[in-house]
Design a protein around this nucleic acid. Structure first.
Lengths: 152, 152
DNA sequence: TTTTTTGCAAAACGTTTGCAGCCCT
DNA sequence: AGGGCTGCAAACGTTTTGCAAAAAA
């Protein structure tokens, strides 16, 4: 944890930004809730517990800054809110998501499933891939089970 | 064109909705600009040329309706607007996109590149895939060329 | 001092909703 | 009459912006 904070601090400094207390509190929330997909409002409320004087605008500005530096990714699952997802250390590409259309749960897939597909896109379409977004919509394990039980 | 309108009319009737003049005008814009990725506002302005009395709310309601019936797909490329994309006739899955980070152009890929990947997701993660969203971000052919020319 | 960052409030933006009126049988 | 559908305006929730104060360099 402290290691990642340090690393992010360096990334900020490299672009002549500072790791202010507000920014650090925001990053800490992101690290603590790494598995979640929090909205700006969610993050704001959690950061407030650590730094009650913080304003929502500062959270937005911090998130924008972290996005620019590719420390986090901004995602949109189709409800009206942007969500923010920490990149894994040294991850070159954004990871994938499984969104359950029944219960709304979001699972992450860290494996890069698109190596082959990207090669095809580059060779067949001449498009130089830099990043990707891949989300599957369907039924998670639990909801498949629930569906079967209801039917039988 | 008329064929697709008829087809959509039938789909609406099957769910006891009507193809009103406003809805038809909206669908026609969508068909005429099939290759584009128009926002609700874009669509509204284009529909206004055919049916000047239409209101923006009606366009939104029509788009929502067409989304429900899976005639169109709502997509989000990360700028703050929803965009709408007509499904190809009989397409089971949503098609993929190549978004150029330089010029903003959006290219469509109709081929289903994810057959294998979906099998992996189903077997390895036990997730029952119903649909997907796949977007690649990178440089389109033209912008790669421009980049090389600037460098040399 | 000069620049960066902050908190607050207001504004802006895309989208949705309430409602009265309209168009159909 | 009754239902669905429409246009308008107002409301809504999220995100951005202006600004003056505070912090850092």
């Amino acid at each position: 944890m402290e290691h990642r904070i340090d690393q992010i601090k360096k990334q900020l400094h490299a672009h002549s930004y500072k790791l202010t207390p507000q920014r650090e509190a925001t990053v800490r929330v992101l690290l603590e809730r790494e598995a979640d997909h929090l909205s700006a409002e969610d993050i704001y409320l959690l950061v407030k517990e650590k730094a009650p004087e913080i304003g929502l605008a500062t959270v937005y500005r911090t998130l924008e800054l972290l996005s620019e530096l590719k420390i986090i990714d901004k995602i949109n699952f189709g409800d009206g809110v942007s969500r923010y997802d920490l990149r894994k250390e040294g991850a070159e590409h954004f990871h994938h998501h499984l969104v359950c259309i029944e219960c709304g749960s979001v699972e992450e897939i860290m494996d890069d499933l698109l190596g082959e597909v990207e090669k095809v896109v580059e060779s067949e379409w001449g498009f130089q891939v830099q990043d990707h977004r891949l989300t599957f919509h369907g039924l998670c394990k639990a909801c498949q089970k629930a569906a079967v039980e209801t039917t039988s």
